[in-house]
Amino acid sequence: MHAMTLRLSPGDDLRAALDHAFRTHALSAAYVLQGIGSLSVARLRYAGRDDAAELRGDIEILTLAGTLSAQGPHLHMSIADADGRVVGGHVAPGCIVRTTAELVIAHLPGERYTREHDAATGFAELVIRAS
């Protein structure tokens, strides 16, 4: 395992930046160990829902974790609003960094992650292969 740290700047899209880092560093399998920071826009898809909810304002990232593959990131995040209310869910595109986001990513050079259709779930699920 090889770890690397990213710091995102105001205006960066969280998902897009992680996908860009995965592709730029030519990673085969990686996961987000942790992420903290702030957002001005959070887009989360809650369990059992088809569409993402959009929250705007001063938002703190409390936790961020997930896998990175050639098919894109699969991320879950918990956030708190300015009143301390906490929600969490699947990270959708359009989460915009407010002041900063600090992310620790682990690269697993001996593995390759892909997402493939799983007949049992009906979703594209993680497939782990030796690289």
Rank of each mutant, 00 (worst) to 15 (best):
P109W: 07
F22G: 02
A130V: 06
D50G: 12
T99A: 12
G72D: 09
H117Q: 08
L126D: 03
I59E: 02
A53C: 14
L62R: 10
I79K: 07
I128G: 03
T100V: 09
L18R: 03
H20Q: 14
H107A: 11
A3W: 13
T114V: 10
R98G: 01
M1E: 10
I79S: 00
T24S: 08
A17C: 02
I79H: 02
D81V: 04
A3M: 15
T99G: 06
Y46P: 12
T100L: 13
Q34I: 02
E125L: 07
A42D: 08
T5S: 14
L14Y: 02
A17L: 02
D13P: 02
G35S: 05
L27Q: 05
T67D: 11
A52P: 09
S131M: 08
I79D: 02
A80V: 00
G37E: 04
Q34G: 09
A82Q: 13
A30S: 07
P109D: 13
D51R: 15
A17M: 09
R23Q: 14
H2C: 10
S69F: 05
H107I: 02
D58Q: 11
G122Y: 12
A30H: 05
G84V: 00
R7P: 04
S9H: 13
H117W: 14
C95L: 01
L68Q: 03
G88A: 09
E125F: 03
H20R: 15
S131D: 14
P10M: 01
D58P: 04
V87E: 14
L27P: 01
V104R: 14
E116N: 08
T5M: 12
H20Y: 12
D50L: 15
E60D: 15
I96A: 02
S78C: 11
L27G: 01
T121N: 08
P10T: 00
V32Q: 05
A119E: 13
D51K: 15
R23K: 12
L18V: 00
Y113M: 00
H74M: 11
T5C: 07
G37F: 01
Y31M: 07
G89M: 10
P10A: 03
Y113N: 03
S38P: 04
P109L: 08
R49C: 14
G89A: 08
G48H: 13
T67R: 12
A30D: 03
G72T: 04
E111V: 06
V86T: 12
P109C: 04
L75H: 04
S131Y: 14
H107Q: 08
A52M: 08
E60P: 00
H2K: 11
A92Q: 13
A42H: 06
L64F: 04
A130C: 07
